[in-house]
């Protein structure tokens, strides 16, 4: 990891989290996924740094590894 900020950087973390969850209120899984995809793209443009984006993607995929493994276990 080089440029990706991994230390706390969001002011009012509880408020932000509430807003993020609230964004998805009343949505089906597919609708939520659609909102998330748009959010990712909007944020990615805000970041605008290819290196940071690459690191963020890698970090996300790594962090989800245990979920991915568990799901594969269930299906296979």
């Amino acid at each position: 990891m080089g440029k990706l900020i991994t230390e706390p950087n969001i002011p009012d973390p509880d408020g932000f989290y509430e807003e993020l969850v609230g964004l998805h209120e009343g949505l089906t899984e597919a609708q939520s996924a659609a909102v998330n995809a748009r959010l990712v793209l909007i944020l990615a443009n805000q970041v605008g740094d290819r290196e940071v984006l690459a690191e963020a993607m890698e970090a996300a995929r790594k962090a989800a590894q245990s979920v991915i493994d568990r799901q594969e276990g269930q299906e296979g």
Binding site: A33, A34, A37, R38, V40, L41, I42, N45
Partner: peptide, 20 residues
């Protein structure tokens, strides 16, 4: 497909999505 459709939707209103 999810990201593709998201890009297309965004491109209507936001210039940033058009190069995608």
């Amino acid at each position: 497909r999810l990201f593709r459709d998201a890009v297309l939707d965004l491109s209507e209103h936001f210039a940033f999505a058009r190069p995608l």
